[in-house]
């Protein structure tokens, strides 16, 4: 059953709006964690550490993936399906690279004795970065669905809403990562 009437089509699509509200909600979770970080930092026993090199590689990967998904969305709307498919695949690969770089970064830190339990500042970093990675994983699942749809021969979709939703979410995790990176660099 369609839940959208003609009258409502003039407004922003309800699913897109839901996503925006959801993004607000996710932001609150990270706001909670980063403010807890700030509160904790001002108390005793807080050790600083340098972020691993791999976090810079992952930053490049996720920024590039944001560009590719933007182009993918544009290609989909222009019905350039061949281009769309390859861009979705590129985004997916870049997303996976991001996760791999984050894990390598964790390994680098761990090797330098920056472990989960050694100091509360380390714990915070692992929880915050890890939780962000979990949200990127969620985005990857959505990308895989788009990927499967794009290569499906049976169904042909002309509805751009799913693509736009995934794209918005992907930009969100990108911007969120940049915020977290700057936060972790500036506030130590």
């Amino acid at each position: 059953m369609s839940t959208v009437t003609m009258e409502q089509r003039k407004r922003i699509h309800p699913h897109k709006f839901t996503l925006w509200v959801g993004i607000g909600s996710l932001l609150m979770m990270f706001a909670g964690l980063t403010s807890a970080y700030i509160v904790k930092r001002n108390q005793a026993n807080w050790q600083t550490f340098d972020l691993p090199q791999f976090f810079w590689y992952s930053t490049v990967a996720i920024i590039l993936s944001s560009v590719t998904i933007y182009l993918a969305e544009k290609a989909f709307k222009q019905r350039m399906m061949q281009k769309y498919r390859s861009l979705v695949v590129t985004t997916l690969v870049l997303g996976i690279l991001f996760i791999v770089f984050q894990l390598l970064g964790f390994q680098q830190l761990w090797a330098k004795q920056v472990t989960l339990t050694a100091n509360v500042s380390y714990s915070f970093m692992y929880v915050i970065v890890g939780l962000h990675a979990a949200h990127v994983l969620g985005g990857l699942i959505a990308l895989i669905v788009l990927f499967a749809k794009a290569f499906s021969v049976k169904t042909r979709s002309y509805n751009s809403v799913p693509v736009e939703l995934v794209s918005t979410y992907w930009h969100f995790v990108d911007v969120l990562w940049i915020y977290l990176l700057i936060f972790l660099i500036l506030i130590r």
């Binding site: 607000g24 996710l26 609150m28 979770m29 706001a31 909670g32 964690l33 807890a36 929880v127």
Partner: peptide, 14 residues
Amino acid sequence: GVLSFPVLLSGAIL
């Protein structure tokens, strides 16, 4: 709810 429950979730995760 949408703005406050996530904060509880972050507290619960910790």
